[in-house]
Design a protein around this nucleic acid. Sequence first.
DNA 1: TTTT
DNA 2: TTTT
Lengths: 153, 153, 153, 153
Amino acid sequence: MAGINKVILVGNLGKDPEVRHLENNVAVATFSLATSESYKDKNGQRVDKTEWHNIVMWRGLAEVAEKYLKKGQMVYIEGKIQTRNYQDKDGQTKYITEIVADQMTMLGARPEGGSNGDNNQGGSNYNKAGSSAAAPVASNAPKFEEEPDDLPF
Amino acid sequence: MAGINKVILVGNLGKDPEVRHLENNVAVATFSLATSESYKDKNGQRVDKTEWHNIVMWRGLAEVAEKYLKKGQMVYIEGKIQTRNYQDKDGQTKYITEIVADQMTMLGARPEGGSNGDNNQGGSNYNKAGSSAAAPVASNAPKFEEEPDDLPF
Amino acid sequence: MAGINKVILVGNLGKDPEVRHLENNVAVATFSLATSESYKDKNGQRVDKTEWHNIVMWRGLAEVAEKYLKKGQMVYIEGKIQTRNYQDKDGQTKYITEIVADQMTMLGARPEGGSNGDNNQGGSNYNKAGSSAAAPVASNAPKFEEEPDDLPF
Amino acid sequence: MAGINKVILVGNLGKDPEVRHLENNVAVATFSLATSESYKDKNGQRVDKTEWHNIVMWRGLAEVAEKYLKKGQMVYIEGKIQTRNYQDKDGQTKYITEIVADQMTMLGARPEGGSNGDNNQGGSNYNKAGSSAAAPVASNAPKFEEEPDDLPF
DNA sequence: TTTT
DNA sequence: TTTT
């Protein structure tokens, strides 16, 4: 019964997150994340290969994504792999594998300007965002510090 | 260009691995791995949820899988997520997400008997396997020890 | 400001955990964990090497450790590296590096007999423990399930 | 005997790496890496906490460090925890815990200017470095691509 | 669809 | 000793 299902990704958002708010007020953010890898093939040619991941964030993490994540942003993501199936419009069963994130940290410079078609007057606003969002964010985290000052060991 | 795509799983094999040897003598092993999770739902009911992962191993790691891995065995696996597409028999494009393993460690007791329909007289043989397979195995690893005896720092 | 500090260990407890309860009713568990590695040296000799880690658990996780973890038990642990310093009895500054765990999963068979010198009258008790402790345990986790039934994407 | 000892860090170099070349021509690089964490304490005050890690790299990875890593650079590092002891000048046994890296990826912008006291005429040179160093680098990796073109499954 |  |  014991099991571990853990994914660690560092990559860039392909687009701004899509965020929905369910009836019960729960937020869900989805976006795709590119992890690029560069290696030499058998002929010594450098090859770039990009893998795209479907990321899903819930609740607080989704709200952080909505506020701070933009197309191009580099992030560290931790989560688990999950495969769902659904019926497509032709009644065919389709499978989709997603990474349900439970931790996210913004890395590196934020992308300039934000997404295409975005009026984004919020540039200055955006800077405020960036400065506070550098801390890791966990999905359900009552993040007070755990350790008392005096260690008894 | 920078990217990290890392998966860490601890789970049990759903079946014995299927191993194929390509023309160029390269071995490929595939199997599915269950990672089980147990949590309490909103009503306080304990729920068990199992996620199945498609594992792919290449070359040396595939050969180790062929020799030592059996249905039920608990393993630690490290690798990366990869999504391929192919045309199914109706010409439909299908996507499949797999974990391409690059490290594997056998954990815990070996399953008894091996797979169903297996004549498996090799019980004693199996013990030899188990005892040596406890070390981690990497896919292309020239595993000599790296560190000289005298550390200059 | 961005940073990731993550440790993943699978190993066996060297002893039963030591658990203390601070004045403020906070529990702290400490124990050492062995992670063993087996490799071939330059002469092709198999060498076993064991690394010992100082594990620290707080609050709920410490209480789980107190109840369920025993010398010899195999566990998966996730946490972060932390180095503290303190003055030893001679006034010398000493440094100690510890793994502050935030997730733990019991793996494999529970050890027989329990701790040293223990004749283990608690065997039956112990089985109850083992059966429920197979789920992962997180340090501050309000572990209700996050996902609503209808996925809007 | 089975064990996993894995560390994943994302942080910034506190100084340029120190690199030594042993008699047998093996390179060793050492540096300290800061992983910073930002959280709210019980009073709601934002607190920044930095953990310093002693990183050790061997052989090819050390040579990459020597060429490309500079004070301030953000890197992803994967490796294992190792504790050594040695006698200090007073004959006291001291323990030091280090992270022996086996993978490294440079993340984000390279720091400007390079190391302290360095007037860094090598700026353009540096750019060449940065552009090729974005790929992940493993310690003993014969990095040819593993997968043949036709997948038999 | 990202990034360097 | 780093970074934002």
